[in-house]
Each structure stands twice: as structure tokens, then as C-alpha cells.
Amino acid sequence: MTTTPVEPPEAALQAAFDATVAHHDRIEPRDWMPEGYRKTLIRQIAQHAHSEIIGMQPEGNWISRAPSLRRKAILLAKVQDEAGHGLYLYSAAETLGVSRDELVELLLSGRQKYSSIFNYPTLSYADVGTIGWLVDGAAICNQVPLCRTSYGPYGRAMIRICKEESFHQRQGFELLMTMMRGTGEQRAMVQESVDRFWWPSLMMFGPPDDKSPNSEQSMAWGIKRNSNDELRQKFVDMTVPQAKALGVTLPDPELRWNEERGHHDFGQPDWAELTAVIRGNGPCNAQRMAHRRKAHEDGAWVREAASAFAARNEAARTAAKGLK
């Protein structure tokens, strides 16, 4: 008897996929998945990975000038973690059938984006603290729900990342706390830094829900679990008491507790600025990309040499086997 393997009809596959997502179970690499789901995931995971890699630069800028050896060690370990996070995420994306090289190429050619927050400059050592506190804090708000995302490898990468991110946020907050106990100049440095990073941090959650075109489908697929505005609100509510504990002022005159809603009211960031930064017109877009491109190009001969050396050893091994 001959049997032709019968492909289950697409509708059945789709139904099985939908059921898995509906049960908050995980989709794994070799499972059937809708093409749109795969593409959305690749785009989201890759952008997240690119953000980690580009995000090494603004803080890396201060490693050489860290004002104490302890801070130097902490900062270097932190920026190193970001390289690790980028690596975990590229690996997660690779389970979807795309290579790291292709993704890097998409970043370097400008066809894929990274978080716009990293297009802002770091102008004082306090920025290291503020990035840890506000930027990593916002990132954690975005990322913790992703530990339960529907795609298994992405969720597992996020669990590892979130554990390490909490160290990042902690070190940032602790740096600011310490500086606030220091000199008047240091306190002014912290406030100035918070003033610069507050609004860009709020923008990290993306545009308001009614102007966020991809959100609805991503939520249906279980890739995304909370809306932009929900996460932004959560971030503000968490940050306000921390700012108070620090002794800094958040630069928003509309910021106040709303008893009725049980949340803080707050002003809207300048969304036109976000659009401009995303379009490539932020203060550091060109610089960040040039830095990344140079590192990649400068390393080409090294990657090539290692591949050539491995191929040569492989050939020698094969020849040795043949002789036996």
C-alpha cells in the first residue's frame, strides 16, 4: 500500500495554532504558524535585539570616564550584559528561520529600527543612572509581560533578560541615590539628567493606542500582552514614588494623583519629536549607525579569518579520516 503524506488542511493548522495561543500555551519553533505571526515576531525580536546592541553606545560612552573603579566595573558589566541580551534575542529570532547576519544587515541598511531612546546623547555621568532608572525601568515594564509571550524561544530569552535588567535598573537608581547624597553640583546633575530623559522615556512605550497600527493583531496573537497606554500608565505610577524617594522633580506640570481613577494623570510627550527621531532625525541617529557600521566592517577580516581557519582544520580532519 502506498500512502501519500497528507498535509493537514491550513484551516485545521490555524485552528490548532489559535487554540494553543488561546490557552496561553507556547508556540515552539517547529510548530506551524501563520506567516504574519512569523514576520511580526521576527520584526519585533530583531528590533529588540538591535536596541540592545545600539543601546550599548550611549552608556558605553562613559565607561572610560566612570568616576570610581566600582562604578566602572558596574557600568562595564552592564553594557556587557546588553551585548548578551542582543545575542539571546538574535538567537531567538534565528529559530524563526532568519540568520543573525541577515538581521544585522537589515539594521545596518536602515530597514529595521531600534528603540528611539538610544538616539539621545548622554551628556553627564548622571545619565548612566537615569538610563538605568528610567530607560531600563520603562524597558522592564515593556519586557516583563513578554516573558509570557506566546512564542517559546522569545519568552525564554526574555526571562533571562528580565533577571539581568533588574540589576541594571537597580544600579541606576542606586547611582542616583548616591549622587543625591553627594555635593550640590551632583544633585543638580541628577535633576538636569532626569529633565532630559523623562519625556523620551515615556515615548518608549510607543504612540498612543489609537495611533498604534500593529498593536491589535499582536495582542490577538499573544505576542504583546498589554497596550502601549496601559504600560505607560503603569510606568508613571511606579516611577512617581521613586522620584520622591530620590528627591528629584519629574518635569511635568500636569503630573498629579487622580483619586477617582486610582492612577496619576500626566501630560503627553511631544509625539512629533518621536516621529522625527524614528524617521532618523534624532540627535544621534547618524552617529549610532556609523559606530555600529564601523565596528561591523572593521571586524569583517577577523570573522573571515576565523572561518578560513575552521575550514582549514575541517579539511585536515577529513583528510586524516580518509587516510585511515
Binding site: 550599548m56 538574535y90 559606530h291 572593521d298 577577523v302
Partner: peptide, 13 residues
């Protein structure tokens, strides 16, 4: 540490 973010590949960074 000046190499940070400049290495030929993430693993070497």
C-alpha cells in the same frame, strides 16, 4: 574596555 561595542562579533565583545 575601550573595545566595548567595537569588537568583530558580539561573542568577542
Amino acid at each position: 574596555s575601550e573595545w566595548c561595542s567595537r569588537a568583530p562579533e558580539l561573542e568577542e565583545d
